[in-house]
Write a protein that binds this DNA or RNA. Structure first.
Lengths: 247, 247
DNA sequence: CGTTTCGTTGAAGAGTGTCAAGGCCAGTGG
DNA sequence: CCACTGGCCTTGACACTCTTCAACGAAACG
């Protein structure tokens, strides 16, 4: 743990000129309100690849805004089975699970070196109560998480392996695009096993389906590097349609 | 639609002497704060079996506290597949999905005649901002929903049919008990197909597993009526343990 | 450069889905 | 009161998807 102070200093927060602001905070927020937020957001925290941001059972104190890097969150059943519940990219808020019981109920791990803004929750609640636009935003973020999970339930409950993978890749693609990266070419930060866990499949199945997609000309796959060749083809897979042209 | 006025009058809300208060509102709430809540909670609304409380796409205006009855919520994919995302019992809050986008993203349907308290969301936000204990409660309810869905993802992503059904029945049992009903004997308000949709199984599989449980002496099943004979046996099924005693 | 982790692929098997037939039950109308 | 109807549930046989087990290859790491 060398030079934590340096690291902390380096990560001084400045929402006002953070390029993730529009992902993380409501648009059109008054400068004066922005300052209130900056005032409570502690310095950032670095999480190295493989390290935990927090664990299930940890006391809940902060929300975290992901500034840089890539995270996964997982839940573990009493008998030890692990389920990936989500992957997180820059601009997303993690830790909402902790609000319900003052303790976290899932683990969050960095899949690549990450930096987060630490947001003490009690103080966020205070500010949010006083700043309607922030309060609304916070509620929307939580609600959006609920809706997202509905989508995952649909995926897990009623789709075949190919549809799941296809929906997953399209979702990643869209999120990369929203962050200014290529929507057709990106690197999968997670392993096949982690994808499989998230999608309710075994890693071998994930691998096989990716190979099949590549063979069908939908993707180019090179280990973790993926290029989407035929996005419409992928969308057809999700819709349960055959890859062949409509009759 | 006979006598809507009568119906509305009959359903006048009175949180202060509602026996669901401890499920629905924070404990130890000051009487003065309770009055603020009562002031915004509109008269109740009845939803007959089979009718919608709201539909995906409906403008989001209210949250609903379920006073009486049994609801299901479902999401539908673009190609028409329907997934049950939850079943709701008295004291639970529904409609949180709508906050994210000012429109609902799921359908909620009554599985038996129901009554809900209608809570205009904008006014709830105002009151919640002013009443910390209510604000905290609202946030906890949303967070709890997120955590609940994590559990469903675990179920859908990593459990076998028998484990899913077993976990589902135990969950229902617990919720009935929390409401003062028998934890061992209850009526399933949903069809086999609806259970299957929620659990990511086909109705035939649900039926078969229930029969198997009955044959193994874990349950007595009579159509929609279920009696849990061996709760520990059911718990062992969820843990992935065999039904036989531990070695 | 060995070691480890991760990924790919094949063959065989288990668990669910699909299809089909029939039973049970509540509601309806004769 | 009874037959009829339609929705729901159960059960069997079979097909299919996905998992399991296993071997090997490729990349990452110290």
């Amino acid at each position: 743990m060398n030079a934590p102070n340096f690291s902390a200093a380096h990560l001084k927060v400045a929402c006002s000129n953070c390029n993730l602001r529009e992902l993380c905070l409501p648009v059109g927020m008054a400068l004066s309100d922005l300052e209130k937020v900056e005032a409570i957001v502690a310095n950032g925290r670095r999480v190295k690849r493989g390290e935990h941001l927090f664990r299930a059972g940890d006391r809940f104190e902060n929300l975290y805004a992901l500034r840089l890097g890539f995270l996964k969150s997982t839940v573990t059943s009493s008998d030890g089975r692990e389920q990936v519940t989500g992957f997180h990219m820059a601009g997303e808020l993690v830790g909402l699970d902790g609000i319900s019981s003052d303790a976290h109920s899932c683990d969050v791990v960095a899949l690549e070196d990450a930096e987060v803004c630490v947001i003490p929750y009690p103080r966020l609640e205070e500010v949010a109560s006083a700043v309607p636009v922030l309060r609304n935003h916070l509620h929307k973020v939580m609600s959006r998480e609920i809706v997202r999970e509905h989508g995952v339930m649909l995926l897990l409950g009623s789709m075949m392996a190919e549809e799941r993978l296809s929906a997953f890749l399209l979702n990643l693609s869209q999120r990369f695009e929203a962050r200014g990266y290529s929507r057709s070419e990106f690197v999968l930060r997670m392993t096949r096993a982690e994808m499989g866990s998230f999608l309710g499949l075994k890693l071998e199945t994930v691998s096989r389906v990716l190979s099949r997609f590549a063979q069908d000309g939908l993707l180019e796959v090179n280990q973790k590097h993926v290029r989407i060749v035929d996005p419409d083809g992928l969308r057809n897979v999700v819709s349960g349609q055959a890859t062949c042209p409509p009759n």
